[in-house]
């Protein structure tokens, strides 16, 4: 059905944007960044700030939010991850603590009431006989373009190849002159920027509230487990799998069960093939 095709694509797109950033950080820096959901929430609030305080047009606010979060990502890496690199447990705790502090700060600054950020594309659109919000189509297009660009970057651009090499072997990378500390900063920045982009496009179709980062973070984590930690291709495949499964279940069974799908998928993966679809 055309509806499942389009709605599933929109769901998959938002999951893919979140999951790819998360898996990139793990694959390259070997960090399970539990502050990824905080990047998402802060991205939405940054956009809200630019719109509400400066009256920025939605498209500009999105770009500004992405830029801000890219900087935040690099800062988080520099001060909360790099110094603890030798102890993975400490990094985990550090990013978890950051996410809690971020949520509390958002709550204190903005209150618990839901906020609204504007759509870049307003209004319904009819495609293939299906009624869908225009922003949903924008989301699909953006996800394809951004993830495609990322893939090209990692395989063709010099810095991209340096990132890829670091993900293969950080010591080997240093031996050929790749400054891995720069690589880690870039990867964190890209990951945070992708989370912010996802929030800025999905947020207007949902709500903005301090705890909004939790569900996307859990979904991203589920996608990454099913797809294989560290595999970008795996994240894309798993995002499609979970996005479409949820949509199909919503359609054919009930919206009551759709949210359970990702939990079931994680369970099955851990039992049957713990390394995930494309993991090692």
């Amino acid at each position: 059905m055309a509806e499942i095709l389009l709605y599933g694509a929109a769901s998959s797109a938002s999951y893919a944007l979140m999951a790819v950033g998360f898996t990139l950080v793990f694959g390259v820096a070997r960090v399970l960044n539990l502050a990824h959901g905080a990047f998402y929430a802060c991205g939405a609030y940054a956009m809200y700030g630019f719109c509400a305080a400066f009256g920025a047009a939605p498209a500009i606010a999105v770009l500004a939010a992405i830029a801000v979060l890219a900087a935040v990502g690099a800062i988080v890496n520099r001060f909360f991850v790099e110094p603890l690199r030798a102890r993975p447990m400490a990094v985990l705790m550090s990013t978890l603590a950051l996410s809690i502090v971020a949520e509390q700060t958002l709550l204190i600054t903005f209150g618990s009431q839901s906020r609204n950020i504007p759509l870049i594309l307003d209004g319904p659109v009819s495609l293939l006989g299906v009624r869908i919000g225009a922003q949903g189509l924008l989301l699909i297009a953006v996800a394809i373009v951004v993830i495609g660009a990322l893939w090209l970057f990692l395989h063709k651009a010099k810095l991209g190849k340096a990132i890829y090499a670091t993900s293969q072997d950080p010591v080997g990378a240093q031996l050929v002159g790749i400054r891995t500390s720069t690589v880690f900063a870039v990867v964190f920045a890209v990951s945070a920027a992708m989370a912010a982009l996802s929030a800025a496009i999905v947020g207007p179709m949902q709500t903005v509230s301090p705890e909004m980062g939790l569900m996307p973070m859990i979904k991203a984590f589920s996608v990454v487990i099913v797809g294989g930690l560290g595999s970008i291709g795996g994240s894309i495949a798993a995002a499609l799998l979970l996005g479409y499964s949820e949509t199909i279940v919503s359609y054919l069974v009930s919206t009551e069960w759709a949210q359970i799908v990702s939990l079931v998928a994680v369970f099955v993966t851990l039992v049957v093939r713990p390394s995930g679809l494309f993991g090692k």
Partner: peptide, 12 residues
């Protein structure tokens, strides 16, 4: 139909 309050997308 009854739905999960955490549903992010009500299009279906």
């Amino acid at each position: 139909e009854y739905f999960d309050p955490a549903t992010p997308d009500f299009a279906p």
